[in-house]
Simulated assay, not measured.
Amino acid sequence: MAHIGFGDTPASRCVYYRQACDLPASIDPPHLGRIVMRAAHVWGLSMPTALGQAVKIRMHKQGCDIGPIMSHTRSVRWTFLIRPDLPDEVRLFAEMFRLNVSVIRDGGTIALPSPTDQRVEFRRWIEPPRCTFRPSGLVVVDSIRACAGHSRVRMITPVQA
C-alpha cells in the first residue's frame, strides 16, 4: 500500500484493494471515507484480539501463510480474511459462536482500514494484504480450535429411547 503513486485516499486505497488484492472494496458512505466490502469470494473470521494473536502465532509456527489480518481497535477484535471454504454446517457455526468467533460469509459486510481511520484508529492492518492470497478458512478454524483448547468438534450423540 505504501507504493501507491497518487496518494493514499479512500479512492486510491479502494483501487489498490480491488486491483492488487482482489478485494471488492467500495467507499460507503462517501462523505466519511469508510471502506467496506461484501463477503463473497472472500470471507472473514472475527475473534477477540487475544485469540487472534494466539491463532496468528500458531499458524506461523505451523509454517502456514498468514494472509491479511486487521484489528478493530475499539471492539478489541481481529478479523482474518479467508478463502470461503468453510462448510455450511450449523455445528461449526455454533462451535465458533461459543468461542466468540463470528463467521462473515456471503453477503456480510467487512469494513476495511481506510486512510480516514488513521486519526481515530478504528481499523488497522496487523498483516496487510499484499496480493490475492487468503488462507483456507479450514486452516484458520483448526488453529482457533487448537488455541481455544478444542482439537476437534465435539459431536453430540443423540440419546437412544
Rank of each mutant, 00 (worst) to 15 (best):
V15R: 12
G63P: 03
M155A: 12
D8T: 06
E95P: 03
V101C: 08
G44Y: 08
S102Y: 02
H31W: 15
W43E: 01
H60C: 12
P84E: 04
L92Q: 04
C147S: 12
D88M: 01
V139E: 12
R91P: 00
V76G: 04
Q160A: 14
G108A: 09
I66T: 05
Y16N: 00
F93D: 06
L86H: 00
H41Y: 12
T73K: 05
H60F: 15
H41M: 04
R123L: 08
R145D: 08
V15G: 07
R13K: 14
H41K: 13
A40Q: 15
V15F: 14
V42N: 07
P135I: 11
V140K: 05
A146W: 12
L99V: 00
L112G: 01
L45M: 14
L23R: 02
S143Y: 00
L81K: 00
P68Q: 03
V15Y: 09
R98S: 06
P128A: 04
M70F: 10
E127G: 01
V15A: 07
A94N: 13
G63T: 04
Q53S: 08
F6D: 06
A39H: 06
L92P: 02
T79N: 10
D65T: 06
S75H: 09
A50G: 09
A39W: 05
S26T: 10
R152Q: 15
G107F: 11
W78C: 01
D142E: 14
R13A: 04
A20V: 07
D117Y: 07
L45S: 03
R77V: 00
P84S: 08
I4Q: 10
F122H: 10
F93I: 09
I82N: 03
L99T: 01
A54Q: 10
